[in-house]
Design a protein around this nucleic acid. Structure first.
Lengths: 198, 198
DNA sequence: CGTTTTGCAATACGATCGCATCGTAACAGG
DNA sequence: CCTGTTACGATGCGATCGTATTGCAAAACG
């Protein structure tokens, strides 16, 4: 029992975090292909090309694995946002609301997984909390960006309303694109128009 | 093999449709409480207070039961819309987009089930087709209502765009209310404002 | 060298699953 | 009455599930 096992002794050196991410990525693929119902330790292990024992070793339980996949998804989206730090507020705002629109198969995987977690969040407390926090963060960030874009101070009470409408619209449009009722370009164009109306 | 078994002979008279609806209702409850993952023939049977054999008799397979639950949900929503036939176009439009906002526990069950099916539709072809048809119907109806409300003829090209934005916004807001990030009243107010802006 | 700790792979177990099968009670028609 | 059909309830089966357990190879430490 020490602060970090890395600091004192570490037999059999492996990159803990890399192993975890590799498994989480396989989890995402399974969810995207078969939905969250299709997630079993055996399926994920097969997709990742590792043994079930490894997954147990790194995540302990299926529950923990699924939850780790959720937080990893949120972290990944947040990381993508941080990369836009140099852009103008208006462009950053557009990124936040349109980043989830699936433009290719890769994006489709990501947003499929995201929607799977959204549905799970209805009945699963821990997932709901993770998504709720992410949503709150996105909302606050949108409010900040809207105010920055308009050059207004913190006294703009309509910004929250605009942010909410923008984010809700983005969610609805994302769903349409996901089920192929709408083309990605059309969705992005509608979001762009909505952003510029602010 | 005859047109309707009712017409010629029917030993052991039971109301076929009533039995099916009773089971479907139990299915909805299970989905609302435990998500679609929690659906098993045994759980649904227990919730309905019937035997597994009965469910098999009326639906044959789990797959068929789940799909029947989906079409029943769509039909139920459509039935609710038909009851607004006497109202003004603007009010009917508001009904279409705000009917899904959960105001009480009953509404919450319905929309939980609806979102569960939405997530399933990503990976399930038959469910996707049912929901796609319903969405198309809703979109066309919204376009009609918008044109009727503005007194415009069929020459209004912006109506489709408005309908799409309205429906997408409704979906996004519904989700917020469902996960308790937003109050039902706020969501309805936002939709009302959006309807009146048209 | 040996000891200890980590990083797994393999397997075993009990629970739960969808579904097929079988038996039977209830009723209609002859 | 008898026969045929429907409407189930009950049960069993093989597959799959999550997880606990066991065992061992590899590497760090002394």
């Amino acid at each position: 029992m020490q602060l970090y096992c890395y600091a004192v002794r570490m037999p059999r050196i492996v990159d803990h975090e890399e192993r975890r991410q590799q498994i989480v990525f396989a989890l995402w693929l399974v969810i995207a292909e078969q939905g969250i119902e299709g997630v079993s330790l055996r399926h994920v292990a097969a997709e990742a090309g590792v043994s079930m024992g490894r997954i147990q070793h790194y995540f302990g339980t299926k529950e923990a694995l699924v939850l780790a996949g959720c937080t990893a998804l949120v972290d990944s989206a947040y990381g993508g946002y941080l990369e836009t730090a140099d852009a103008a507020p208006r462009d950053r705002l557009l990124h936040v609301v349109s980043q989830q629109i699936p433009r290719d198969d890769g994006g489709r995987v990501g947003v499929s997984v995201w929607y799977a977690y959204v549905a799970k969040s209805i009945n699963h407390t821990a997932v709901r909390q993770v998504l709720a926090e992410a949503r709150r963060g996105a909302e606050e960030e949108c409010v900040r960006l809207i105010r920055a874009d308009r050059g207004a101070g913190a006294e703009d009470p309509a910004a929250l309303d605009r942010a909410r409408r923008l984010l809700a619209l983005a969610d609805g449009l994302t769903l349409r694109v996901l089920v192929r009722d709408l083309e990605p370009d059309e969705a992005v164009a509608m979001l762009e128009a909505e952003v510029d109306r602010i």
